[in-house]
Simulated scan of single mutants.
Amino acid sequence: MKFDETGFEGQEVKFEHIQHAANACGFVHGEQWDYERAMFDYKIVNQGDTYYVRVPIYSIKGDIPRKDTICRLMSPLLGKHYYPHGVEYAGETFPDSVVTKAKSKLDLLKHTLEQEV
C-alpha cells in the first residue's frame, strides 16, 4: 500500500535531519541501504502478523549515510512480511487498525521532521 499524501514526498532534507526525526518516531534505519538509497522502517505486529511502514529516501547530493547528504523523501509504503520471502506491498488487504497506526506514525514523522528542519 502506498501513501501518496503524507505531505513530505519530494521534500529534500539532510540525511542527519531525516535520521534524527525518524529515530525519534520509532523508525529504524537498518542495514538496508546503499550510497544512493535507504529505508526507514517502523514495525507493527497485529494478531501475529508483521507489517512494516517504510519511508524510502534517495540521495540527490552526497552519499548515504553521511550526515550532510541531501536526500529526497519518497512516498511511504505499508507492507506485510512473509517469512522467509520478505515484504509484500501489493495485493494485500491491511487491517484498519494497522492502516490507522501507520498513518498516525507518518503524521508524527512529518511533524517531527518539520521541527527538525
Rank of each mutant, 00 (worst) to 15 (best):
G7D: 10
G7P: 09
G7H: 10
E9V: 10
G10Q: 15
G10E: 12
G10D: 12
F15L: 14
F15W: 15
E16G: 05
H17N: 11
H17F: 05
I18V: 13
I18W: 01
I18M: 09
I18G: 01
Q19I: 03
A21C: 08
A21F: 04
A21S: 14
A21E: 03
A24Y: 07
A24E: 11
G26M: 15
G26P: 10
V28S: 14
V28R: 12
G30D: 13
D34C: 09
D34Q: 08
Y35K: 10
R37L: 14
R37T: 14
A38P: 06
F40V: 07
F40W: 14
N46Y: 14
N46F: 15
Q47E: 11
G48C: 12
D49M: 11
D49Y: 13
Y51K: 10
Y52D: 03
V55Y: 00
P56M: 08
Y58Q: 13
S59L: 06
K61Q: 07
K61T: 07
I64K: 06
I64F: 06
P65K: 13
P65R: 14
D68M: 06
R72I: 04
R72F: 00
R72Q: 11
L73C: 07
L73M: 07
M74W: 09
M74R: 10
M74L: 12
P76A: 11
L78M: 06
K80W: 04
H81L: 15
Y82C: 13
Y83F: 15
P84C: 07
P84T: 06
P84H: 05
E88T: 14
E88R: 15
E88G: 10
Y89L: 05
A90E: 11
G91L: 10
T93D: 10
T93H: 04
T93M: 04
F94P: 00
P95T: 14
P95C: 07
S97E: 11
V98E: 09
T100R: 05
A102K: 02
K103T: 02
K103V: 01
L106V: 01
L106H: 01
D107E: 05
L109F: 04
L109S: 01
H111D: 05
T112C: 00
L113V: 01
E114M: 00
Q115G: 06
Q115T: 03
V117R: 09
V117G: 04
